[in-house]
């Protein structure tokens, strides 16, 4: 059964067609990868699916229910968990408080009861804390429990953000570059962890990822985006050898006229501000990719 069905999704920012007729399906318990060069529209697709952007046309259907126009916080309550490309957490709070904040939609008491206090609220707050501790233990982050998030290293933050997404009790988890800031070994571990989490929590996942070995090893199905359009889709083995994908992404010459398209301004800003590591790392992976990346960098600046 398909958990998430996206059909003909399009969105335009000014003169830029950020997404054009994107159609994808995520089935129950699948890990689906969304890959593509910088500025291909991956994060935009995430934002449309999770409700942060309202698509111009197209539909997002979650378990048979049209949720295209549902605001993000309601989607979170429905079971959409997501992480951000730049780490999405409350930086001035402690790790524990972040995990409790993330459980917001699962809290049973209402605002007034919370303000009055009492035994029921206290019991529930303890339950939230217990759940937070369980997640910390699962991810091996218990030692950071009382630290402020703002002082942690980037790799820890990415893992912790995954923990926060888990704390929202998601049904479908959308991960935006979970392995950024991690070395090859750590990202391999992350891949194994994702598969374990899927099993433990019965999750369905959609992930944006730049680290190709990770995508190829964990994903059941891969969609490749390029300049806002779906370039290819299929099993990892198919994608790996797909000629157009190899040309556009895995390392080959990109056609000249297409390379001039800029990223969406928001994505460019996000990339620059939070992602210097990934931005530098991506072109270095394979030598020919450098050529393709150079004109794009120019256009986005």
């Amino acid at each position: 059964m398909s958990v998430l069905e996206v059909s003909d999704l399009s969105i335009r920012f000014g003169g830029l067609q950020a997404l054009q007729d994107l159609t994808l399906t995520v089935n129950e318990f699948e890990i689906v990868g969304l890959i593509g060069p910088n500025g291909a529209g991956k994060t935009t697709a995430f934002n449309c699916i999770t409700g942060f952007y309202k698509p111009d046309t197209g539909k997002v259907v979650y378990r048979g229910q049209d949720v295209t126009r549902t605001p993000p916080h309601k989607k979170a309550a429905m079971g959409f968990g997501r992480t951000f490309q730049n780490v999405g957490m409350v930086k001035s709070s402690t790790v524990l408080d972040n995990l409790k904040t993330a459980q917001h939609a699962r809290v049973q008491y209402d605002v007034v009861t919370g303000l009055l206090g009492g035994g029921r609220v206290a019991a529930e707050e303890r339950a939230l804390e217990a759940k937070a501790d369980a997640i910390l233990e699962l991810l091996g982050l218990t030692e950071f429990r009382h630290l402020r998030v703002g002082g942690l290293s980037y790799g820890t933050l990415k893992l912790l953000e995954l923990g926060c997404a888990l704390a929202t009790e998601p049904d479908v988890l959308l991960l935006d570059e979970p392995s950024s800031g991690m070395g090859p070994e750590e990202s391999h571990e992350l891949g194994e962890r994702l598969i374990e989490l899927r099993k433990a929590f019965g999750l369905t996942m959609l992930l944006i990822e730049h680290h190709v070995p990770l995508v190829l090893s964990v994903c059941d199905h891969i969609y490749v985006l390029n300049f806002g359009r779906l370039l290819a889709e299929g099993k990892p083995s198919v994608i790996q050898t797909h000629p157009e994908v190899v040309a556009a992404y895995l390392g080959g010459e990109a056609p000249e006229e297409l390379a001039a398209t800029a990223e969406t301004p928001e994505e460019a800003a996000l990339d620059e501000a939070t992602h210097p590591v990934a931005a530098k790392k991506a072109p270095a992976k394979k030598a020919p990719a450098k050529k393709a990346a150079a004109p794009r960098k120019k256009a986005s600046s």
Partner: peptide, 18 residues
């Protein structure tokens, strides 16, 4: 917790269901 999350980052707050 919701107000603090909102103050820091509205998008993150929304992703947490606030």
């Amino acid at each position: 917790r919701a107000l603090l999350a909102l103050k820091e980052n509205e998008r993150v707050a929304e992703a947490f269901g606030i």
